[in-house]
Design a protein around this nucleic acid. Structure first.
Lengths: 211, 211, 211, 211
DNA sequence: GATGAATGAGTGTTCATTCAT
DNA sequence: GATGAATGAACACTCATTCAT
């Protein structure tokens, strides 16, 4: 009854295993053979579905890029009626561990790294960031018009937010003295408040952006 | 006294070729065989000097990490007597293309990526950033005491500077709409001015940090 | 009564594509997968019709062997009433490029080559040559009885004709200094005239067989 | 003492095994793995010496082509003082089984076949035939000047001899009714006598060239 | 009749590494 | 110090074929 495993089910299943094999064995270690063994299938079946390993890698890149965009929580937030509350929840989510944790860091960096040698992967990631930027711009506009923030160049603002958000992961990995992720995340968020010129009346003490 | 092509000279030479092979062939493509062919020597000789490829990779990581620290230009700048001039030249260099161009981006990202699977490499890079942070702190202190900037938490300030500086490369690679590197770099620099609370009297028009 | 694309039509179609795939990709390169792709069908379908690839190869060998025999032009020639004219047209056709061009040389040699490892293919080709020899004998007899040629051993004569005819292709491929195919063909034809002891009165200048 | 197996010894050894593997398994069946197993060595060692299988195949082609040229017996014959005796021994050797048996037929045909897809192999074989033709021309000249044969176009004569000689193998493989190789070989030789216009006084009964 | 899933053997080749010289 | 021989594991991928649908 459920033996009817076709491409629609199999391909995501394989990508899932590919993803986890990368986590456990690294990108170079994630051979088709190992993925197949992990799944209990024959290596050539993977080729059957993806033709080449590169295809499979690109497709995994797509999935990862899509996951980044599809942070489901955004839905609830942007549905919030009180725009001030909405702003702060928006920023909290932006600088939250949830944002970072959707994709395993090592895989994430793997694909950044692969971007340098694979145009398709680069395009996927670039597209993902541009899409995300559009989403940010759209919302920044609302906040600006409501007088919560005070900016003129939406695009630049969105860009700097992306840099800060990505920077948290980076900091956590390479610079941090083992302090909890959230600590620097919150700090970065406050820096964002400052750069966006958030209405000072709205800021409680824990949101102060003095370095 | 006889031949002087010993390890001391050979190892850096090999690492140099390893580095360029990575640029041209990617990390996976940079096999010992290819490096050897590039040098016109026998692959075994590379093993002879480094024992294993992993060793060689780690050593290349060290060299790269050291290069990042040893930005020679800093010397001239910190020797500057007029502290205000010094500050702006300091910031200009920090957000300059020279900072980014010392090491090829693709190799840089390769080692970030390798950090996830190799503790030694991670330590090297982590150490490099900490060292760099110390350097920043030291200088920020001077600027703060001279009343040029106005901060309280030096470490945090240094961290955010690192994030912003690293973010330029990242932005250039993935987010930028093909605008020149310098444009966003300058913008990021201005954001830094804002976060550091630079004395407004010192800012000319092109240094204004309004988004 | 429904679809009429059944084996009778499909098999020759597949063989046709197999033939052309061999020309383009070589025998080793002519995989079932490639043939199927060429036809826009599924590889399994080819297996469905031929059971195994070897079967298919043997069947292609049959088709090729048959084509060699079925040189339609012979019909017109042997219908010729003037036996002298008939002889010369017969010989002209025998040593013509049309004889060689019916089957692509590379495929032809492929099957010679396959003959060594496949009894069935060898039998097909052997049968084809024997059949062709019978045809030659039959006609040589007529020419001999009409006094045009002067031989006693028909079989040997037929054999030597086959050797000469096949030799033209061989010469063209390996020995010729890029001179046109027809030049050596004509030369070989004249040698045949000599061996068959053609009545000298019948020979015009361009048919003289002196080396 | 004899462990010192280097390329000079190893490569011919491998080619020898390649040759025999082709005989036993056919060209497609002669994989590097099988050759290695036959030799009791590791497959990658074969790659070590030849880099690619194609190289190895081309080199085998060279060896085969050279063997054809280097028929040692010629030496003794052309040293013969009595030119008439020499002529007949020359022709006997030309149409002898020794000429055909130096290289296994199936391998020989394999390389004919490969010539169609590999320029280098084609060149080797073409060169071999041209070299052989030169050798024939050189000798035909002597025989002609001695009045034994009577020809004007040496090159054409040499070409037709090659075609006849190659034709024996061909006939034996595909046309012959299992009659011994020598029988048709002798017959072909006699045809050659006829084409070369051998001085009739020299011909004994078994050399008569009437078909 | 036709397709896709799945298999399993096999391909040439790459690679890091060891050892003897 | 430097080379070549040799290894053995691993790799992505091809291929013909079988089976269920």
């Amino acid at each position: 009854m459920r033996k009817k495993s076709n491409a629609e089910f199999r391909k995501p299943e394989i990508l899932e295993h590919y993803y986890h094999t990368i986590i456990e064995e690294g990108f170079e270690g994630a051979s088709i053979g190992k993925i197949a063994k992990r799944m209990g299938i024959h290596p050539s079946l993977i080729i059957h579905y993806f033709k080449t390993k590169e295809n499979m890698t690109v497709e995994l890149g797509e999935v990862i890029a899509q996951k980044y965009q599809a942070v489901e929580q955004w839905g609830n937030i942007t549905a919030q009626r009180d725009i001030k509350k909405m702003f702060f929840r928006f920023m909290d989510l932006l600088f939250s561990i949830e944002m970072s944790a959707t994709i395993d860091d090592s895989v994430y960096f793997t694909f950044y790294y692969l971007s340098f040698r694979n145009q398709e992967i680069r395009n996927n990631f670039s597209g993902m960031f541009k899409h995300f930027r559009s989403f940010l711009i759209e919302n920044l506009k609302k906040f600006n018009e409501a007088g919560i923030i005070n900016i003129t160049d939406y695009k630049k603002a969105a860009d700097i937010l992306i840099v800060l958000v990505e920077g948290i992961d980076f900091h956590d990995k390479f610079v941090s003295d083992d302090e909890p992720f959230q600590k620097f995340a919150k700090y970065a968020r406050n820096m964002a408040f400052k750069l966006l010129d958030v209405d000072k009346k709205l800021l409680t003490k824990d949101k102060i952006f003095k370095i």
